[in-house]
Amino acid sequence: MKNIDFLMAGVGGQGTILASNILAEVGLQLGYDVKKAEVHGMAQRGGQVDSHIRWGDKVYSPLVEENNADYLIGFEMLEAARFPHFLKENSLALVNDYRINPPLVNLGKATYPSKKEIETLILERAGKVLWIEGTGIAKNLGNPAMVGVVMLGALSTLIGGDKEAWLDVVGRMVPQKFVELNKEAFNAGCAVTV
């Protein structure tokens, strides 16, 4: 089995941690050794949240090494733009087409980079940037917090693996009353890339 390294980046409150938990669990279901690392603590206060997920035959470090990530999954454009140095050449970036201003931008003291600039930066490493209207799709389905599951749907079609295995893990890990809605969000994510 080929090792696969993922990096997820978002803003506190976007559901990054749940999405990374799902992705790690899917790896375990698919028969990989899995490790996952993230730091939480102050993240709930709107800080950045980045999560490392590694699938492989034998995984030692829970942290992905720079120049080695296969996938960058950005829940927010600027957060995605912080991590291209982790990517290997010709890797793939999936980025939610969504912007949350950091405080300095709100105060008019810094500039939020343009989508074009962010894409150019990520393309220095990635072979492709796949823009996904994740928050838009999740909002249309009734809850913007499902953006993570939409992104995972899109990712699943690129990695492969039994779709039912993915859906099974999603069903087990999201809150009970929102299982069907989340499965819908996952399918909507799949449809983006197919």
Binding site: M42, G47, P102, P103, A110, Y112, P113, L121, E124
Partner: peptide
């Protein structure tokens, strides 16, 4: 690229 990426401190 040396694109400026404003920090996002917790608030």
């Amino acid at each position: 690229s040396n694109l400026e990426r404003p920090i996002r401190p917790p608030m």
